[in-house]
Design a protein around this nucleic acid. Structure first.
Lengths: 203, 203
DNA sequence: ATACGGTTTAACCATTTGGTTAACAAATAC
DNA sequence: GTATTTGTTAACCAAATGGTTAAACCGTAT
């Protein structure tokens, strides 16, 4: 089987690249460091991925397509807004606790190169908010929840879930707490965030 | 007056460095680009600030001390929690609309080098949450607001204010909107966020 | 006028960095 | 078995980059 070796190497490279890019960013990452981490010669990086830019894009796309379906699945299921909020916050916070590097990586790199998101948008599976927005509109009309736009509710929910991960060092310093306690606070948010939101919008 | 010239240059450098560092980050910034932007010779950067690292730290400290007092002022004044939330969200969002680069810069660089925050903590004027926490505790006890910890309420408030600026490109893509509309949404949040929070915690 | 201090510049330097090459190794095909 | 393709490496390269230096500049005091 001739594929054995190169598949291994290709995966090893991607894993190493993931690790380095996600902790140091595109600009901070060094090709040599990626090669070292993968335990192979630097030339192999170019053999499999041609350039730093392309290797980076592979990592980024990979990371993004890990995050996007999570959003989509919940936004488009058939439960009520309240149910959706509960599922979303709990799932998303759990997910990010497993991949704490991810949100920051994606946000950081999207800020560095805004055009990047366009490539993602063209991918199938890019999250679509239409159903959620319509649903919010309906529930507001039926007086189930207070008057709020789908966009604002979505931004609020996303902010409450993601920001503690992105702003971790800042928040940790501001509330003057250590790593362990901070993780407990995050853990508590799996439920707290949903309650906070629902408390706010439920009539 | 011999100070005239160098003060000008020093300030010109800091301004240019601010601009470059805040849009490209420490790793992405180039000393030559900073010099070009300041309209001076690259050697001057080292004459006034010795190294890239020190120049960066000057910019960072500068940026941070622009943000910190904002927090402190509101957290330590004598109004009720509800008043504080209102002031805080409105002030903070207004502030960030004026400096849209700032939150991302600070968060990005704190993630790159977590030790950095320690230096900031030693500065006088680093925000202190004690009063706010005590106040939340009291208002919960008096049944003015629902049961919530000061930390969680603070994290929620900060998240709702800051995240839309940090995650701007991502959110813009997700809610599928253009720059102008997005700015309107942000503008609306000056009031929306406070209402959202107060709705949630007020009994 | 001249000597002196800080300021500014062009040229230079060592190192790092992304990327290439040419030769070697190891499968696979014939 | 041998030719051929694929995978891997060490050595190399040019460009970029942070930083230095030595000389020039310029306002001021003597």
């Amino acid at each position: 089987m001739k594929k054995k070796k190169d598949e291994n190497t290709e995966v090893k490279i991607l894993d190493a690249a993931k690790n380095i890019f996600q902790s140091k960013g595109m600009d901070g990452a060094r090709m040599q460091e990626i090669a070292d981490r993968a335990g192979i010669n630097k030339a192999m990086l170019h053999y499999y991925y041609r350039s730093k830019q392309l290797l980076f894009e592979a990592v980024f796309t990979n990371a993004f397509s890990l995050l996007a379906p999570q959003l989509n699945a919940i936004l488009n299921d058939d439960s009520s807004i309240e149910e959706k909020i509960k599922k979303f916050t709990s799932n998303y916070i759990t997910f990010m606790m497993k991949h704490p590097y991810l949100p920051n990586f994606i946000i950081q790199e999207l800020n560095r190169n805004e055009d990047f998101i366009l490539k993602m948008k063209n991918n199938t599976g890019f999250p679509n908010l239409e159903k959620f927005k319509k649903q919010v509109y309906e529930e507001v009309k039926k007086d189930i929840i207070t008057s709020i736009s789908g966009e604002q509710l979505f931004i609020n929910t996303l902010s409450l879930c993601v920001f503690p991960f992105v702003g971790r060092p800042l928040i940790k310093a501001l509330i003057n707490t250590d790593e362990v306690t901070f993780n407990q606070i995050i853990e508590a948010r799996k439920i707290e965030v949903a309650n906070f939101i629902i408390n706010s919008i439920k009539k």
